[in-house]
Amino acid sequence: MKKERYTISVFTEDIVGMLNRVTIIFTRRKINIDSIAASESEIANIHRYTLVISEAEDMVKKVVLQLEKQVEVVKAVYHKDSEVVYQEIALYKVPTEVLLSGGEAEKIVRAHHARVLSVEPAFTVIEKTGHKEETQALFNQLEPYGMLEFVRSGRVAITKPMKTLKSIVEELEKVQY
């Protein structure tokens, strides 16, 4: 089966070691995690992990069932890129002199709708949010001017077709055992 990019959202109780329990499911099957982001959810004490992997859907389905099987996982779901609204953030550190010279670099920053977060005598930090392709495009254009440092976050994603987490949790809390 064809490999595609999937976003897996895992909602868990907020406890120590949960990230480990989640990631070993992938490790064991030798699935590389392209990106991972952990944060709170809209419900207190429920954390969400957003993972991106490239795999065949059949495997993704099985992995999600394995995730759901974990005692402290409240819910796990997977989506194709078309089913989620997602963003990543990238930070670029470039020499300030490149931007001061009034040349191409400034135009590049403008064209990409990136913003300058901090200007120091030696370096400037630029921020760009978008899809990976977009943050990568800016990287590719800035790189020739001297990239001092680069970092990109994991994907965060909001799912389009989904029951609200609140309704899922309410249903689970109603179950007797």
Partner: peptide, 9 residues
């Protein structure tokens, strides 16, 4: 007696 994240039956 039970937890919301684990519904064994």
């Amino acid at each position: 007696t039970g937890m919301r994240s684990y519904r064994p039956k």
